[in-house]
């Protein structure tokens, strides 16, 4: 199958799984004993948070691949940038959905809890990364510098997390991936939760492919512009 059809298929799959998550989350699953309908955010919030972490993981790996001389290729740089951009969108979604849940549950839109603070810092950290990508005009310089910045962010995240975890924390502990791997959620609620993870991951994959294609087209366009300019100059001599 051609590449384009594959991408369309991934897109269609993402749309369908998100649609099913939507229906399951809003209508099929029951409200929670304690949280009532608020629990329905659980089908979205942890899933988008996971995608944000996944996106930054991909950015870090791709940046490492670019910095390592044996695998140095602009493809890695473009992939790192595309994934970081999608990651920023999902981090913002994580904060927004978390706030919507936090207001009725904790009574506040925002609290200085460990995970909230880490996530907010993560957002500004990668906004900085994206801003840095815009200031360098030279392609190689941009790729190298943003790869180093991505590595700095990657090393920083666990330290940021550790430092804010030492504040007393309000956030729930992990529901699915807790230490003894014994999920506290069962039945159709658990399935919907897992479906949420799957559907948003597929959305992420589709968005990164699309963003990567745009980045690659821009890259080629820059090359062509330079070539055309050279031809015009040489032609006039």
């Amino acid at each position: 199958m051609a590449r384009k059809s594959w991408i369309a298929l991934v897109g269609a799959f993402a749309l369908v799984t998100v649609g099913v998550t939507y229906i399951m989350g809003l209508w099929i699953t029951p409200p929670d004993v304690f949280q009532g309908n608020l629990v329905r955010l659980i089908y979205v919030h942890p899933a988008v948070a996971w995608v944000a972490y996944l996106a930054y993981g991909v950015t870090s790996l791709a940046s490492l691949a670019y910095l390592w001389k044996k695998t140095r290729n602009y493809k890695w740089d473009l992939l790192a940038a595309s994934s970081a951009e999608v990651g920023v969108v999902f981090t913002a979604l994580t904060l927004i959905t978390g706030s919507i849940w936090g207001r009725p549950t904790w009574g506040v839109w925002w609290t200085w809890d460990a995970r909230l603070t880490t996530t907010a810092l993560l957002l500004v950290l990668y906004l900085g990364y994206l801003a840095l990508r815009r200031v360098s005009e030279d392609r190689e310089q941009r790729a190298k510098r943003s790869a180093v910045a991505a590595l700095i962010a990657f090393i920083d995240v666990p330290i940021v997390h550790q430092s804010v975890v030492w504040w007393k924390t309000l956030h729930q502990s992990a529901t699915v991936f807790n230490a003894d791997l014994n999920p506290k959620i069962h039945g159709e609620m658990a399935w919907t939760l897992l479906l949420g993870f799957l559907s948003f991951t597929v959305v992420y994959v589709w968005m990164v492919i699309k963003r990567y294609d745009i980045a690659r087209t821009q890259f080629k366009l820059e090359d062509q512009t330079v070539e055309r300019a050279i031809k015009e100059r040489v032609g006039t001599i």
Partner: peptide, 27 residues
């Protein structure tokens, strides 16, 4: 020092350095 070296030659150096550095040194 790493971030300053990256941004010192750019036109937006005054604004980009705090944006890059402050979140990283939050810990």
């Amino acid at each position: 020092v790493t971030f300053s070296a990256m941004t010192s030659a750019s036109k937006a150096k005054e604004t980009i350095l705090p944006l890059l550095l402050l979140p990283v040194v939050a810990p």
